[in-house]
Amino acid sequence: MYARSEPAQREPDSSARPPLVRELLLVAGLFLVYKLGRQAANGHVEEAFRNAGHVWSFERAVRLPGEGAVQALLLRGDTLVHAANTYYATVHFPATLLFLLWLYRRRPRHYVWSRRILAVLTGAALALHLLFPLAPPRMLDAAALVDTGQVYGPTVYGDTPATDSMANQFAAMPSLHFGWAAMVAVGLIVATRSRWRWLWLLHPAATLLVIVGTANHYWLDAIVVSALLAVAFAALRPPHTARPRVHHPWPAIPVPSAATALARAGGPR
């Protein structure tokens, strides 16, 4: 009898895991640049509202669905719109941070790739925030939308952009809320093999409905960040995930001797 070998379990490649302290500093620096970059782009009020009018007119010209249709669904009940505001305010950063922590521990190679994608995406987005300040649809009179954060709560912004020292309310284009959510979903789908992994796409889907329904972003904000993410994916390919090889020993096959072979063949002729 031959012992049947057990399939090898895939263990994280510790040699691919970068030093923890260095990564903590890098990730902390990424978040700091994100916050400081958004604040540096503050101001430009007239330009931000002028750009908002252009974006709104462009969306209507290409017949994108109105943001108001999504908001109307949220406004059917106070509980639903409050949940959307809470999702917008509390899920963005923690979900991305937990995603990076899990990859660092379980999929080090995918962690490095994902961190690079997020860094490139965030840098490109911050550049657009500086070059194209954009007032969100909740501020645009032509949109006639409700500022759900201020009306129903909770909100992450001050009453007016002039008094908001924590965030740049004119950094709507592109939406890093949606970009990071899409990266979390794609990163987990690429790094895992579960048949249920495609359910991670619910995160960016829910984020898209939330950012549009709360009138914090236009559809175009999500489209642009998706294009940036596609460019980053094309430039930085994910690591190859090798499937573990399972060794199946072959049973020994007895080789007949010459005499046995002649006997079976009926003797010499």
Rank of each mutant, 00 (worst) to 15 (best):
A3P: 03
P7H: 13
P7W: 11
A8F: 06
S14H: 05
A16I: 13
A16E: 15
P18C: 14
P18A: 08
P19I: 11
L20M: 15
L25P: 11
L26H: 07
A28S: 14
G29E: 10
F31A: 11
G37S: 13
G37C: 09
R38M: 14
A41N: 05
A41E: 01
G43K: 07
V45M: 10
E47P: 05
N51K: 13
W56M: 11
F58T: 12
R60C: 08
A61F: 12
L64A: 13
P65G: 14
P65H: 15
P65C: 03
E67F: 03
V70N: 01
V70I: 14
V70E: 04
Q71M: 09
A72P: 04
L75I: 06
T79W: 11
V81T: 01
H82W: 03
N85C: 14
A89V: 10
V91Q: 08
H92R: 07
P94S: 13
T96C: 11
T96G: 15
T96D: 09
L100F: 15
L101R: 09
L103Q: 09
Y104S: 08
Y111C: 10
V112E: 11
V112H: 09
S114A: 15
I117A: 02
A119Y: 11
G123E: 11
A124H: 09
A124Q: 13
A125K: 00
L126M: 13
H129P: 03
L131T: 08
F132Y: 10
F132D: 01
L134P: 04
A135M: 07
M139P: 00
L140K: 06
L140S: 07
L140Q: 04
D141F: 09
D141E: 08
A142E: 15
A142T: 06
A143G: 04
A143Q: 00
A144Y: 03
A144P: 07
L145K: 00
G149D: 01
Q150L: 11
Y152I: 00
V156S: 01
Y157V: 02
G158R: 00
A162Y: 04
F170H: 02
M173V: 06
M173C: 02
F178P: 01
F178I: 02
F178A: 00
A181M: 03
M183I: 08
V186H: 03
L188A: 03
I189K: 04
V190H: 06
A191F: 07
W196T: 08
R197H: 07
W198Y: 15
L199T: 13
L199R: 09
W200S: 00
L201M: 12
A205P: 02
T207I: 10
L208E: 00
L209C: 13
V210K: 00
V212T: 01
G213V: 04
T214N: 05
N216V: 03
H217F: 08
H217D: 02
W219S: 00
W219L: 04
A227I: 08
L228S: 00
A230G: 14
V231F: 08
V231M: 08
A234E: 07
A234F: 06
R237S: 11
R237A: 15
T241S: 12
R245L: 14
R245D: 03
V246H: 09
V246K: 10
H247D: 06
H247P: 02
W250G: 02
I253G: 04
P256R: 12
S257W: 08
L262F: 12
R264F: 13
R264A: 15
A265L: 15
